[in-house]
Nucleic acid binder design. Structure first.
Lengths: 227, 227
DNA sequence: AAGGAAACTTGATGCACGTCAAGGTCGTGC
DNA sequence: GCACGACCTTGACGTGCATCAAGTTTCCTT
């Protein structure tokens, strides 16, 4: 069984809470509960109202929406240490996305009122929340830019480069953080198209694909690659 | 010439600042300056660092980015009372978009330090900033959803319905808030396509177009219209 | 190890939307 | 009033990516 002490320790490791005093962490702990999710399990549906936000501890969560025709679009992939749901918590509006565990996962739920208390007690915490939301916004604007004025190949390349980090121009191996189906959706394309693009890039000698392992052979050239 | 008193009055009318005390408004005023923009004038370029954010007082500002190939994409249209640039102010990152006046406009620039002071003095203000950013995020998620799983016709319909508001099913006239070129870009399509779609909807008897004036003849049927 | 279901690949085909090019319409200045 | 330019419309055409339909591989189950 997990004790409140565990939760306190986990909270204090999160970027968002790292600089809080022990007493503040303690009061946050009171409003926090741990949730275990099995692979494929829904955390919340589209349209739900949240009374607090979440932080992933382990596993992987996908945020997505699905259209009337049943096809779904992945908006974000959440890994350990990342939070989600802040915006709708503050807005008190129904969530535009649903959250589902891609693998067995553990998340923390932090009650809205605990957050408000922390904001009241510590304006630096408020600033950190603001910075967190700003980063999220920044990322979404980036997504919109990608979707609207880059080709599918360019989006895949951007994704790969981000995956290997700002590494040097040598060969770098990395592993896809999820199934190709999920990655494709995140990049706003079909699995078929992603498959073809990867095949293509491999043909040009820019990358090597072996299952989920992808080796970027020449980052510089990949950056410059223009279909 | 505009005196500080004018600025104070304008600030206190903005949603973001409405509940601040007079003394707080006064200290914000000190960090605020007014900027006049001629039609077509740039407020800031893509890549700029902002030392504060903006609030439109009159006129209309477009936020957009442009690709290497020169075509540009409108992310948001800012009208009087709306603020923009908060996120990059908090993040201290280069702006992913540029801001340009579509008509002669006046905006206020509120210095970062004044905002931080206000957050420190009033946690309710911090919450309002958080809510503001959350709303922005919500809107962007909505945009991403529209772009990725709705057809161009559906996007235009959504735009028109939003324009006439949640009005009853009768005929409602409204005016496009900008040139069709700008609207098209905001909806992520070319002017040609927008033109064709409007023509199409008119042919089906759902709307009537006369220059910038558009009359939604049957909102209910328009909602249900499926190409 | 064998079987089966996911996940992935590959090819053939289609269509929504962009692109290019040629008018048309409106407003604005001389 | 006329002429010029900005904005918009209309048509013909091209294409990037989705869709549909088989395979093939991977991996999980028993």
């Amino acid at each position: 069984m997990n004790t409140p002490i565990d939760i306190g320790r986990m909270l204090s490791k999160l970027p968002l809470f790292q600089q809080l005093r022990d007493s503040e962490i303690f009061s946050l702990t009171a409003g926090t509960r741990e949730i275990e999710l099995a692979k494929g399990q829904m955390l919340f549906q589209k349209g739900y109202l949240l009374d607090g936000f979440y932080v992933a501890v382990s596993g992987q969560i996908k945020l997505a929406f699905s259209s009337a025709q049943g096809n779904e679009k992945v908006v974000a992939l959440i890994g350990p240490g990342q939070s989600f749901g802040e915006a709708i918590t503050f807005l008190e509006k129904p969530s535009p996305v649903f959250a589902q565990a891609l693998v067995d996962s553990r998340v923390l739920h932090i009650a809205k009122q605990s957050i408000f208390a922390a904001i009241n007690g510590d304006s630096a915490f408020a600033c950190r929340m603001l910075a967190g939301l700003s980063m999220r916004l920044h990322g979404l604007v980036q997504d919109v830019e990608d979707y609207s004025l880059r080709s599918s190949t360019q989006r895949v390349i951007g994704f790969l480069l981000q995956l290997v980090g700002a590494a040097a121009s040598g060969a770098t191996e990395c592993e896809l953080p999820a199934s190709k189906h999920v990655i494709a959706s995140r990049l706003n394309l079909t699995p078929e198209t992603l498959s073809r693009i990867l095949h293509n890039l491999a043909e040009f000698g820019l990358i090597a694909v072996k299952g989920k392992k992808i080796t970027v052979l020449d980052a510089e050239q990949l950056k410059r690659f223009n279909p």
